[in-house]
Simulated scan of single mutants.
Amino acid sequence: MSLIRKLASYLSSATGRYYLMRRALALIGIRRFRYLLVAQPVPPHPLLTRPPSGLKIRAIGPEEYQSGWFPRPTSIIDFRYRQGAICWVAFSKEQPVGCLWIVPGPYQEDEVHCRFIPYPVGRVAWDFDVYVAEDMRLTRTFVLLWDTANAWLREHGFQWTASRIDTLNERSWRAHAAMGARQVGEAIFWRLGQHQISYGVGGLHYCILGRSLPEIIVDVDAEAR
């Protein structure tokens, strides 16, 4: 299939139409985000029986993290650490090639204005920004990052990790689904300047940024209920 035919096929799909709608709204100053809320079980054992040689994973604290490692603003990294987030970084020959973040409790988003609350408390952590460098995406970096994070989660009594995935990021959803993740909800946000309307678990919420903060509970047992 030619590139033009692939592009036409994508734009005619539901995902493609949503992408075009989001771009059109952005032109008039409206930002729209639609997230899948997912829950992923913490497996009882490592996924890899033999870690790959030459690849090391370390938990990196704020004093050691270097802003040039990944395409993330320093202000955002500082914001994450202030919330108690833990960052695991994968190194190949001493070069950082991937990262994975976990918060063992509620997480205030940096892309939209809200706080996600993984529930039940103490059983569910929050994961975000799982990143692997382009030239390492066909290696076992992704799995080794998760093995390392899962070992920490098991040690601290967590049985699940929850997260949000942009509906345009199909690659991320497939990766999580391959590890047993399932959708437990959805959240939609509209932003215009300092005004935000959100809809998700808990209903509709309007706020002016900086004055109130909607909270969205991500309940891993919601589907069963």
Rank of each mutant, 00 (worst) to 15 (best):
160 W>G: 02
199 Y>Q: 07
80 R>C: 07
17 R>S: 06
208 I>K: 15
24 A>D: 11
8 A>C: 04
123 R>K: 15
58 R>M: 12
135 D>C: 11
55 L>E: 02
188 I>C: 10
147 D>I: 07
128 F>W: 13
187 A>C: 14
31 R>M: 07
39 A>G: 13
32 R>F: 14
156 H>S: 02
55 L>C: 05
15 T>D: 09
118 P>G: 06
86 I>S: 08
188 I>S: 10
170 E>K: 13
34 R>T: 14
80 R>Q: 15
3 L>P: 01
102 I>N: 03
121 V>P: 02
195 H>P: 01
133 A>G: 11
224 A>Y: 13
201 V>P: 06
13 S>Y: 11
212 S>M: 02
9 S>D: 12
70 F>E: 00
174 R>L: 07
194 Q>C: 06
109 E>W: 09
75 S>I: 06
93 K>L: 10
160 W>Q: 00
94 E>L: 12
209 L>T: 10
214 P>W: 06
66 Q>N: 03
142 F>V: 00
224 A>L: 13
50 R>L: 15
207 C>V: 13
117 I>R: 10
19 Y>S: 13
11 L>W: 13
84 G>A: 05
67 S>C: 09
149 A>Y: 01
85 A>H: 03
29 G>P: 03
221 D>G: 01
197 I>K: 06
187 A>K: 03
160 W>E: 00
40 Q>W: 02
215 E>L: 04
179 M>D: 02
139 T>L: 11
53 S>G: 14
212 S>L: 07
203 G>D: 05
69 W>A: 04
81 Y>L: 07
20 L>P: 07
54 G>K: 12
164 R>G: 00
2 S>Y: 09
198 S>V: 01
132 V>C: 11
